[in-house]
Structure formats: C-alpha cells, structure tokens
Amino acid sequence: MRFLITTVVAYLVYLLLTIGSGTVFLWSTAELIIGAVFAVVVGALLRNRFIGKDLRMLNPRRWFTFLVYLFPFFFAMAKANIDVAYRVITGRINPAIVKINPKLKNDLSLTILANSITLTPGTLSVDVDQKTNELYVHWINIDPKVLKDMPRDYHPICDSFPDWARRIAE
C-alpha cells in the first residue's frame, strides 16, 4: 500500500514536470516510460520514509479543506504585508516574544500553523516546545490586553488558524 502511494505520487510529480514534451496527450512516449521506471525505483526506496504511521492525509476532504484555507490565508497575508509596509515606513514597533498554546496534537498541523503564523499579520514563530506543542511567537506590535493572563490568548495572534490546521491535519 505504502509502496503504491509513493510510486503514484512520484509519477504524478514527474508527469507534472514534463508536461509539453510530446504528442501522447501532452507527453512523449519516452518520458512516460522513463517516468514510470523512476517512480517505481523511488517508491521502492522511500516507501517507509514518505508516509508516516497513519494514512489519514489520503482523505480527499482534507485536501479540499486545505485548498479552501488558502483563501482566508492569502487575505491575511495581504493584510500582513500592508501592516509591515506601514511599520517599515513609520518605524512604530512594540515587539515581544509570547508563548501560546494552540492545543494541536500532531506535527503536521503544528507545522501548518507555524508557517501560517510566520506569513501572516505581524508575527513570526521562533521556537516550539515539542513536549507540550506550545509555540513561541515574536510579535512586532503587541496588544497589551494579551499580557494580563499567563496562558496567553492566541486569538489576537493567529485568529482561527488553529481550527483550520486541526481540520486539515488531525
């Protein structure tokens, strides 16, 4: 099963990279055959590395959720850039490093969240506590309300992104 999935993914990537090489649909015969051979080799070598312990990312609903997620993400990213541009020009900053606990359970969802935090409004993920899955976030212009209580509220930092990450990868 793992071998099959890895081979199919490798073959798809190869086909994607060689689109437009010939006349069988969009590919040349040579590319189709060579691609299949290499995909089988890659599948045989990497079947235990490419896929982890469980196969839950095979569910197409998760991929669909991921594609839907790109829209609010892109919007937040545009906002972040205008915000940073404003701070570059005016120089008004008030930075801090805060600890948040988004209550995510596995590595993939945490990776998605950390990357989203880095690319969205005024925040940059600095470090992660792998035992408790807590993130340390550098915040360029801190909201004083967050400083009052110790389990920091993550909503001003990343809004509903933890929920999206949970839906995609848990």
Binding site: I97, D127, Y136
Partner: peptide
C-alpha cells in the same frame, strides 16, 4: 529582542 515588552522564551 530589542525593545521587547516580554520575552516568554527567556525562561525556557
């Protein structure tokens, strides 16, 4: 971090 208000990472 320069001019930082808090640094939670300090204690880790």
């Amino acid at each position: 971090p320069a001019r930082a208000v808090v640094d939670d990472l300090e204690s880790k």
